[in-house]
Simulated scan of single mutants.
Amino acid sequence: MACDMDHLKSINDPAVLQHISAVLRAMTRQHVDSVVRYGLDEFLLVVKCSNTGLPLFV
């Protein structure tokens, strides 16, 4: 899943980046999913598929 943070390039503050990363990590399953910064203002959420057959909501 891709997350585009509009106008993040103009802010470019490490504290803001850490906060955004923490919020995204809180929405994922620890030790299963990953949050990766991609480019200047995009983040990727790498979500392992669930084997329950039910949709996975993040």
Rank of each mutant, 00 (worst) to 15 (best):
R25C: 07
S10A: 14
C3Y: 12
P14I: 05
A26G: 15
C49M: 11
V58H: 03
L8E: 07
I20W: 11
A22L: 06
C49Y: 11
T28S: 11
L8Q: 03
L54T: 02
T52E: 13
H7P: 01
E42A: 09
G53Y: 03
Y38H: 08
K48P: 00
E42H: 11
Q30I: 08
L54G: 02
I11D: 07
S34Q: 05
V46Y: 15
V36K: 00
L44E: 01
C3G: 03
Y38D: 00
D6V: 07
T52M: 02
S10T: 13
V47A: 07
H7T: 00
R25D: 09
D6W: 06
V47W: 02
H7I: 05
A15E: 14
L56N: 08
M27C: 12
L24N: 02
K48I: 03
A22V: 05
F43R: 00
N12M: 08
K9H: 12
G39I: 04
L24K: 00
A2N: 13
S34L: 05
V47H: 01
N12Q: 08
A22Q: 14
R29Y: 09
F57D: 10
V46E: 14
V47F: 06
M27Y: 09
L56T: 08
D41L: 03
K9L: 00
G39F: 04
V23D: 05
K9F: 01
L24P: 01
R25Y: 14
L24Y: 02
L40K: 02
G39L: 04
R37S: 02
P55T: 09
N51K: 12
A2D: 11
A15P: 02
V16M: 15
V23K: 13
L45H: 03
V16I: 15
Q30D: 11
C49H: 09
S34I: 00
K48Q: 13
T28L: 14
T28F: 11
V46M: 15
I11G: 03
P55V: 10
D33L: 04
L54P: 00
C49Q: 14
S34V: 00
G39W: 06
V36Q: 01
D6K: 13
T28N: 09
C3K: 01
D41S: 07
D6A: 07
A15S: 13
F57Y: 12
V32Q: 13
N51T: 09
N12G: 04
